[in-house]
């Protein structure tokens, strides 16, 4: 296990390095930020001075060298948009997104296990068909459309929920953002749980358990589920990573100051230091999730442990 973890850590480090190099150079292909930070009427000299002061006139490779030497001292640079250290800006946003991702995944996972298992229990029956169609259909709706419609319905027309915002992270403010984030992973995971439960329920050990007189509930939720969990975990981790990276729409519409919103703004405003910092930190989080998932795998499935 120890060597395995060490190997994974090395792999993650290599990936992170590759990612950073790619991001650094690709970001600089999106144009000089000077235009975005100075008013239209700024003089040419003012523009040149600005570019000079922020080092945009240097060759990209020199800028990269400067970035690396900063990195060596754990300095991710300063946001030219916010005039604050980029790392601070990102670290403020990370917990918001992680919170959204964690709650969403827990709710989606629990819901998908219940619905998926029930669907698999009597395949082809009405509950199964309805669960499949509804979960697939809701997962295929554009999320910003769902979000705005939900606000108009639940907040404006019905007045049940606040429109948006974090409201000091009170529970009523979570319901709509989570609800919108939820639908896609939920729909997907219902399918996966159903598929993997179908396989598990027709396997030999479930038949044995049944023959031994184990209750149906135990058959589903203990024997079958435990063995059907592996693919579910894979998909769940994939989706969690997706949310950590892509809650941008929910964050934008509901005004949650997460890292997705930060990233799109930084990209549109060419705030390179923040782009780099947010990608670096998010990627580190995703790699950590992946390693944790691998460990969970090994715990759940003894066959993999020696792989």
């Amino acid at each position: 296990m120890g060597t395995y973890l060490a190997r994974r850590a090395v792999h993650s480090f290599v990936s992170l390095a590759g990612l950073l190099i790619l991001v650094f150079f690709l970001a600089r292909l999106t144009g000089d930020p000077t235009n975005l930070y100075l008013p239209l009427d700024a003089t040419l000299e003012a523009r040149q001075e600005f570019a000079e002061r922020h080092g945009f006139n240097d060759p990209v490779i020199v800028q990269f060298g400067r970035f690396l030497s900063g990195l060596a001292e754990f300095d991710l640079g300063t946001s030219i948009r916010k005039h604050r250290p980029a790392a601070d800006v990102v670290l403020e946003a990370i917990p918001v997104t992680l919170g959204l991702a964690a709650v969403t995944m827990i709710v989606a996972l629990l819901g998908a296990i219940v619905v998926g298992s029930l669907a698999a229990y009597r395949p082809g029956r009405i509950f199964d068909r309805l669960a499949s169609v509804i979960s697939l259909a809701s997962a295929s709706a554009p999320d910003f459309w769902v979000a705005i419609t939900a606000i108009l319905l639940f907040a404006v027309t019905l007045g049940w929920l606040p429109t948006s915002g974090t409201g000091g992270f009170a529970i009523e403010y979570w319901i709509m953002p989570i609800g919108v984030l939820l639908i896609r992973p939920f729909g997907l995971m219902v399918q996966v749980v159903r598929g993997s439960m179908l396989t598990a329920l027709s396997s030999a050990y479930v038949k044995t358990a049944r023959a031994k007189g184990v209750t149906e509930r135990a058959v589903i939720f203990v024997h079958a589920l435990r063995n059907g969990m592996l693919p579910v975990i894979t998909v769940a981790s994939d989706q969690a990573a997706g949310i950590a990276n892509g809650a941008v729409i929910v964050e934008t519409i509901f005004g949650w100051p997460g890292v997705g919103k930060l990233m799109i703004d930084s990209i549109l405003y060419r705030d390179f230091a923040v782009i780099q910092a947010s990608i670096l930190i998010t990627a580190a989080v995703i790699f950590t999730i992946n390693i944790v998932v691998d460990i969970a795998y090994a715990v759940l499935d003894p066959r993999i442990r020696h792989h």
Binding site: H11, S15, G18, V23, I279, T282, I286, N290
Partner: peptide, 9 residues
């Protein structure tokens, strides 16, 4: 790994 954690945006 890199593509997965790279923002498509």
């Amino acid at each position: 790994d890199i593509i997965m954690s790279f923002p498509s945006l």
